[in-house]
Design a protein around this nucleic acid. Structure first.
Length: 362
DNA sequence: TCCGACCCTGCTCA
DNA sequence: ATGAGCAGGGTCG
C-alpha cells in the first residue's frame, strides 16, 4: 500500500472533522513527547498507529483530515501482507476514535483563557503555542512507553518503542514498504516469545543501528529480548510490569483506573516495577483521565524554581518536593493543571528551535 | 532521607 | 578533528 499525503490525490479515502487550530495543533501535540508513535510522513502529514489501525492525519485550516489504511473495499488481495486485518470501521466509528483520542469535546480556548488569567507567565508563553491539548491514549501503550522514558530523551525513546513494536507487536500493514506494527499486547510482553521465522529488519532512515545488528534472540525470554533491543535496565521494568499486570488487574483493570480517583490510580501504578511518581503521573494524565496530574521531571522542577519561585528546601527532587510542586501548579491552574503544564512543556521543548513556520526551510 | 548505579546517546570541552 | 567526561524528561536498593 502507498502512503497518502493529502486528500487531493484520492478524496474518497479521506474524511474530516471540524477543528480550528486554536483547539488543536497536530504538529505540536504529536511531536512533544506525549506519544512516541507518530511520524511526519510528509510536511504536515502525520502517520501513526491508533486503535490497532494505521492513520494519516493532516490539518488544513479549520479541518482535521484523516485517512485510515486497510479500510478500502478493493485491494483485498493485499490481505496476505496484512494478516491482522480487522473488520471495517464505519465513518462514525473512525470519527469517534479521533474525537476520543484528541478529546475534542474538551474546549481548549476557554481553558487557555482561564490559565492565562490566573498566570501571566502562562499567558506570555501560550500566545506562541496554541492548540496544545492532552491526548487520551491507550493505558497499556502509555504505561510501557513511559517506563522507557527514564533517564532518556525523545529521539532515543522513539527508536526504542519502534523496536519494541517491531519485535513484539503484530504487523498491521506496509506503507511504501515500511511496516507498521501495533503496540504489543500484554501477553506478547509476558509470555514466551512467539516463534518468528525471521527478524524484521526495516530499511528506513533514522533507525537505530541496534535494530539491524542486535535482533531479538530466538528462544530468549522477554527481558533478554528487550535487552538485546537496547532497553538496558528498563528491560527488567517492562517485562516485570507486564507480568505484574497480567497476573493482577489485567489490561481491563488498568483501563478501569480511569474510573477511580487520581490518588488511587497513582498508588496502583507506583506499585509496578519501573514506575515512580513521575511515570505514574504521565500515565494518569495521558491515558487515565486524571487532568489534575502534573508530572514533575527535572525540567519542570527547574521551571518551578526559576520562573515561579517555588521555594523548596533540598537540592534534589525529593518525594516531598515533588508533591509540593504538583500542589503549587494545581493551586495556580486549577483542576486541569496537567493540561496547562503540557502547554508549557511543549513550549519549553521547542525553545531554541526554529518557529514552526520555518521548519522546513534549508 | 540521600546518594550511586543503571544502559545508552549526544553534547561539551579540552 | 577526536575522545574523555558528563548530563539526560527516573527508579531502585
Amino acid at each position: 500500500m502507498k502512503l497518502r499525503d493529502a486528500p487531493s490525490a484520492c478524496p474518497s479515502l479521506w474524511r474530516w472533522l471540524p477543528c480550528p487550530p486554536a483547539e488543536l495543533r497536530l504538529d505540536l501535540v504529536l511531536s512533544s513527547g506525549q506519544s512516541f508513535r507518530w511520524w511526519e510522513s510528509s510536511p504536515g502529514a502525520w502517520t501513526g498507529v491508533l486503535g490497532g489501525r494505521v492513520w494519516t492525519l493532516r490539518q488544513d485550516g479549520d479541518r482535521l483530515w484523516y485517512t485510515v489504511y486497510g479500510e478500502e473495499e478493493e485491494h483485498r488481495e493485499e490481505r496476505d501482507e496484512c494478516p491482522a486485518k480487522a473488520a471495517k470501521l464505519s465513518a462514525a466509528e473512525t470519527d469517534g476514535i479521533l474525537r476520543d483520542y484528541f478529546q475534542l469535546d474538551v474546549g481548549l480556548s476557554p481553558l487557555y483563557h482561564a490559565w492565562g488569567a490566573a498566570d501571566p507567565l502562562f499567558r506570555k508563553v501560550a500566545n506562541d503555542f496554541p492548540g496544545v491539548r492532552v491526548l487520551r491514549q491507550d493505558p497499556v501503550e502509555c504505561l510501557f512507553s513511559f517506563i522507557c522514558t527514564s533517564n532518556n530523551h525523545i529521539s532515543r525513546i522513539t527508536a526504542m518503542i519502534e523496536r519494541l513494536c517491531q519485535a513484539f507487536g503484530r504487523c498491521l500493514c506496509c506503507l511504501d514498504s515500511r511496516p507498521f506494527h501495533a503496540f504489543p499486547s500484554l501477553s506478547a510482553l509476558t509470555g514466551p516469545p512467539p516463534p518468528r521465522s525471521a527478524p524484521v529488519i526495516v530499511p528506513w532512515p533514522r533507525l537505530h543501528p541496534l535494530s539491524a545488528s542486535a535482533v531479538p534472540l530466538p528462544g530468549a525470554d522477554a527481558e533478554a529480548r528487550l535487552r538485546a533491543l537496547g532497553f538496558g535496565y528498563r528491560a527488567k521494568f517492562v517485562s516485570g510490569s507486564a507480568r505484574a499486570i497480567a497476573e493482577g488487574l489485567g489490561s481491563e483493570g488498568l483501563c478501569q483506573l480511569r474510573t477511580v480517583p487520581y490518588a488511587e490510580a497513582r498508588r496502583v501504578l507506583c506499585a509496578l516495577p519501573g514506575v515512580g511518581a513521575k511515570v505514574a503521573d504521565c500515565v494518569c494524565l495521558l491515558s487515565l483521565d486524571k487532568a489534575e496530574a502534573v508530572p514533575v521531571d527535572t525540567h519542570v522542577w527547574h521551571i518551578a524554581r526559576q520562573r515561579y519561585g517555588v521555594a523548596l528546601g533540598g537540592k534534589s527532587l525529593t518525594p516531598r518536593a515533588y508533591q509540593e510542586i504538583g500542589d503549587f501548579f494545581r493551586g495556580l491552574w486549577g483542576p486541569r493543571a496537567g493540561w496547562a503544564q503540557a502547554v508549557l512543556f511543549c513550549a519549553d521543548l521547542r525553545k531554541g528551535q526554529k518557529p514552526a513556520s520555518s521548519q522546513h526551510q534549508a
